[in-house]
Structure formats: structure tokens, C-alpha cells
Amino acid sequence: MEEEKEAVMVTPGEVLGRTSDVKAGRGAYAALHNNTVYASLTGFRHTVPPAPDSSDLRPTVEVTGHKAHGPVPQPGSVVIARVTKVMARSASADIMCVGPKSVREKFTGIIRQQDVRATEIDKVDMHLSFHPGDIVRALVLSLGDARAYFLSTAKNELGVVSAESIAGATMVPVSWTEMQCPLTGQIEQRKVAKAAS
């Protein structure tokens, strides 16, 4: 099954197919009361064939629009954030990117003490894990409260990816808890993210 050659323009509410024949992808939704897939965005309809190893043989129908929508953090998504404030039990951060895309609105995240690392969570010192201005890679745990999303760095590949030393230089990771200033050689404590190999 090949992808549709000629894209058809659709608007929200237009029928894209039956749930028995197609799966709803981006820009589409399935109405359970009548088992119909509808468009939820204005754009061009595309049918993506199922993966060869997939057990579900239904193609995915999606609507791609004329302009990109700003991403919104959702539970399970990996975000890049800048630490703004560090407190005894938590650190606040402004989310800058969701996956590979930069956000167009300001979203605030909170990294709680118990979400900094996976082991010895009660011994975590927030001031030795993050500093204001650090760029961190984190996972969105949940929507949190009305003010902020709850973020976690409790994985090897999550944590500080870029930090400035007191001297103003970008520090180099030395271990998973230390970063070193290339100018002064001074070592500072951080919860360092493992570099992608």
C-alpha cells in the first residue's frame, strides 16, 4: 500500500474513513459513537501505510497543515529546559524545546528532589545537582499543578547537558556528578546527562 500521491484538502469534521479501515494519526480523531475517523485540522489528507512488522494492517490517515503548530509538553515527552531557580526541595525550569521543536509559549517545569536521580533519592542535594542557567534534558512526568509540569532527570541520559562555570566558560562533563571548567580547571557538582553515543 503506497502513500497517497494526490493530497486531498480537508477541514475539521470531514470524514476520513471508518475505524475498521484506517487509524487516526496526527490531525485526525476517531469518534467512538459511530466508529468514524474525522479530520481535526485544516490541511492535506495523507495515508501512511502500516509498518511491515506491524500486527495492525490498517493504514494511518493524517492531516498535515500549511503551518506548523507549536508543540505542547505532554507526559512522556523529552524536553530541553533552562533552570531558573533552585530551592532546597525542587528546581524550577522554563521549557524551551519539546523533542526537536522549540515551544512558542512559555511552559514552566518543576524538578522535585525525588525526581532528580533514580538511586538514593533522599540524599539528593538540589544545589549540587542544578544551578540557575543550566540547560537540562528532562522527561515530562505529569501535568503537575496549574502552574507547572513535573519533570524528571532520573535516567542516565537525562540531566544537565550544558552549564556555565563561574568563569563564564561552558563546562565539560567529567563524571555523572561532576563538570569541569576548561579555563580554570575548577570542578563543579551537577547531575550530568550521559552523552548520546
Binding site: G13, Y29, Y38
Partner: peptide, 8 residues
């Protein structure tokens, strides 16, 4: 604004 809508 590309807000997902059920219909117009």
C-alpha cells in the same frame, strides 16, 4: 491557529 477541532 491549528487548534484541533471536532468540526467547523
Amino acid at each position: 491557529a491549528r487548534i484541533p477541532l471536532k468540526h467547523l
